[in-house]
């Protein structure tokens, strides 16, 4: 292996992050019960499960007891009995459902560690868990969900979703295609305009914190800098007025909000200190993130493609 050349960027490393997955067909739906061949696939962390459902159906079709009565659009997956939310990124699902410190994950099949890879999931085509999962009943459901999530992130950054709404038809289509085809360059050619080159100082950091057990999601308004920042903003910044000087000043005032500060505010029961983890650790893209990381930097380099920092909380044992 050669180590010549510059190290890959954080963005690139996150985009390339993937999880080896073993998928089993629910034995009750297989004509050979639990003798169905498993399907192995390397899933990109920043992608979404339904994009791979056609591949799964193609593989498992011949094993189904009653192919005629199966609707491939009813596919869903579970991990240890927990249905996987199709509208959450795959990396987030892995981080929140496997739960513990990712640095201990192992490929050793014989180890008793529940983190052993591949991640084993079960595929179902019946008994859709309506109580736990939104239905995936239109061909555009996943795209709609993704686009709405990018709008929500835009709303948090700017107070409205104009940046996403004003993308041209072609660029909106390209943005989604870059997710479908997992194309890094295409994605960032558009996403950079939304995430990094915002016209105004960022109002809030798009962040969602996920707690284990009930898969509870915690959301709050998180300003990028600690004090006095927003009060300096003009009440209604308009694109016509040049705010670049003001922006320069604003970006240099106030301490940046850190991961530790936001966790202590959002989940005080689990993060008693802004500096040290005693009960729980924040996990993003399979990495334990240091509590002193400034959120504004994290947002620019380590957001999921929908623009959110989806942080899974892992409990320390």
């Amino acid at each position: 292996m050669s180590f010549d050349g510059p190290p890959p960027s954080i963005r690139r490393a996150i985009w390339d992050g993937s999880i080896p997955v073993q998928i089993l067909l629910n034995p009750g739906e297989s004509r050979v019960f639990d003798n169905t061949d498993p399907f192995y696939i390397q899933l990109p962390r920043v992608s979404y499960l339904p994009l791979f459902y056609p591949q799964l159906y193609a593989f498992f079709e011949s094993f189904l007891i009653d192919k005629g009565s199966v609707n491939p659009a009813e596919a869903w997956l579970d991990f240890e009995g927990v249905p996987l939310k199709w509208h959450w990124p795959i990396g987030l699902l892995y981080d929140i459902l496997t739960g513990r410190d990712p640095s201990y994950a192992t490929m050793d099949w014989n180890s008793g560690d529940e983190h052993r890879l591949p991640w084993t999931l079960t595929l179902h085509y019946s008994d859709y868990p309506n109580e736990h999962l939104m239905r995936l009943d239109s061909p555009n459901a996943l795209q709609d969900s993704f686009v709405n999530s990018t709008k929500e992130a835009d709303y948090l950054r700017n107070g409205n979703s104009r940046a996403v709404m004003s993308l041209s038809m072609a660029d909106s289509a390209k943005l989604w295609e870059s997710i479908e085809t997992h194309n890094f360059d295409t994605f960032w050619s558009i996403a950079d305009r939304l995430i990094t080159n915002s016209a105004y100082p960022i109002r809030h950091i798009p962040i969602k914190v996920y707690l284990p057990s009930a898969a509870k999601v915690v959301q709050k308004l998180v300003p990028p800098y600690l004090q006095g920042h927003r009060s300096l903003l003009p009440p209604n910044p308009s694109p016509q007025s040049s705010q670049s000087m003001l922006r320069l000043i604003l970006f240099n005032t106030g301490e940046p909000t850190t991961v530790g500060i936001v966790l202590k505010t959002m989940v005080p029961e689990l993060f008693l200190s802004t500096r040290a983890n005693r009960i729980a650790k924040p996990v993003l893209h399979g990495i334990v993130i240091p509590l002193n990381t400034p959120l504004v930097e994290l947002m620019k380099e380590a957001s999921y493609p929908d623009g959110f920092l989806h942080v899974a909380v892992s409990m320390m044992s």
Partner: peptide, 10 residues
């Protein structure tokens, strides 16, 4: 089908 059933949290 809550995650509490998972071995991780017991």
């Amino acid at each position: 089908m809550a995650l509490t059933t998972s071995i991780l949290l017991t």
